[in-house]
Amino acid sequence: MSGHLEQIRLDSYKPLRELVCEHIREAIINGVFAPGERLMEIQMADEMGVSRTPVREAIRKLEMEGFVVMIPRRGTYVSNMSIKDINDVYEIRISLDTLAAGLAAERISDEELEELQRLLVKVGNAIEENDMAKVVEADIEFHDVLYKASRNERLRNIINNLREQITVIRGVSMRYPGRLKDTQEEHRRLVESIAARDVEKSQEAARIHLENAERTLMAAMSERKGGEELHNSLAAKQ
Rank of each mutant, 00 (worst) to 15 (best):
Y90E: 01
E91A: 10
E91D: 10
I92P: 00
S95Y: 06
T98C: 10
L99V: 08
L99I: 10
L99D: 02
A100D: 05
A101D: 06
A104R: 00
A104S: 13
A105R: 01
A105P: 05
E106W: 05
I108E: 01
S109T: 15
D110M: 06
D110C: 01
E112D: 15
E112K: 10
L113E: 11
E114M: 13
E115G: 02
E115N: 09
L116Y: 02
L116I: 07
L116V: 08
R118K: 15
L119F: 06
V121W: 04
V123G: 01
G124E: 08
N125T: 11
A126D: 06
A126M: 07
N130M: 12
D131W: 10
M132E: 13
A133E: 14
K134C: 04
K134F: 04
V135I: 13
E137N: 11
A138H: 03
D139R: 06
I140F: 00
I140N: 00
E141H: 10
E141N: 11
V145Q: 07
L146Y: 00
Y147N: 02
Y147F: 15
K148A: 08
S150Q: 03
R151I: 07
N152E: 08
E153R: 08
R154C: 04
L155G: 02
R156G: 00
N157V: 03
I159H: 01
N160H: 09
N161E: 05
E164Y: 04
I166C: 00
I166F: 01
S173E: 14
S173I: 04
R175T: 14
Y176T: 03
G178N: 08
R179Q: 15
R179T: 13
L180V: 04
K181V: 09
K181Y: 12
K181A: 14
T183Y: 10
Q184M: 12
Q184E: 12
E186L: 12
E186S: 09
H187S: 06
R188E: 15
L190M: 14
V191W: 06
E192F: 12
E192Q: 14
S193T: 09
S193M: 09
I194T: 01
R197H: 15
R197Q: 12
D198P: 09
D198S: 13
V199N: 03
E200N: 11
S202I: 03
E204Y: 11
A205T: 03
I208Q: 09
H209C: 02
L210Y: 12
E211D: 09
E211I: 06
T216V: 15
T216Q: 10
L217H: 02
L217Y: 04
L217K: 01
L217I: 06
M218K: 15
M218D: 12
A219Q: 11
A219Y: 07
A220M: 10
A220T: 08
M221E: 12
S222F: 15
E223I: 11
E223Q: 13
K225I: 12
L230N: 06
L230A: 13
H231I: 11
H231P: 02
N232L: 15
S233T: 12
A236H: 13
